[in-house]
Design a binder for these strands. Sequence first.
DNA 1: TGCCAGGCCCTCTTTAGGGCCTT
Length: 206
Amino acid sequence: MLNRLANTIVVLDFETTGLSPATGDRAIEIGAVRLQNGVVVDSFQQLMNPGQRVNSFIEQYTGISNEMLADAPSCEQVMNDFADYIGDDNLLAHNASFDKKFLDAELQRVGRSYSGQFACSLLVSRRVYQDAPNHRLGTLVKYKDIASDGDFHRALFDSQMTAKLWLEILSDIETKYQIEQVDFNLIKKLSSLSKAKVDGYLRSIS
DNA sequence: TGCCAGGCCCTCTTTAGGGCCTT
């Protein structure tokens, strides 16, 4: 892996009681890995008790049961620890708008915040892998032939897979366009371009 | 009873609608 991946980034994934904190949904698990120089240097995983029962769909979808959550620490306790973990690092998630709204909502409850910027592997993959069958995390992992031995829809595993996908995206851009430095800022730039303009832009800077 | 997410992105578009993605 070349020196171009020097940026540190925290890749995170939430499991939640539903789709929106605005309608009362809460986080039930957070998983994250920290990438430095393209290598996972540490990780964070914690179930958290949302103070409400999760429905059967969520139990089945995530494999996280009400029984498992009963003895888990509170969201407030876990999110305080997680705020310490992420520090000032930039952040990445697959469909980041979803994880960002839960991160913001849960941190607001404990009076914490963060200074890093979010990148989204879903938005980038739609631009870089335009021939993929779809852009779900599991599909992209298969599409890129990324080794995966674990349970999708658990927070740590999904964050690990997102991290591997992220490195694959960086590597593929570097190889295809012979770009020496694919960093967080370039990815943010790509995410602001339409799909049709990404190829031309990358050729223009290679 | 009826409500029930929201940002992105494409197109049969922009005075809009609907699929994709996340749980």
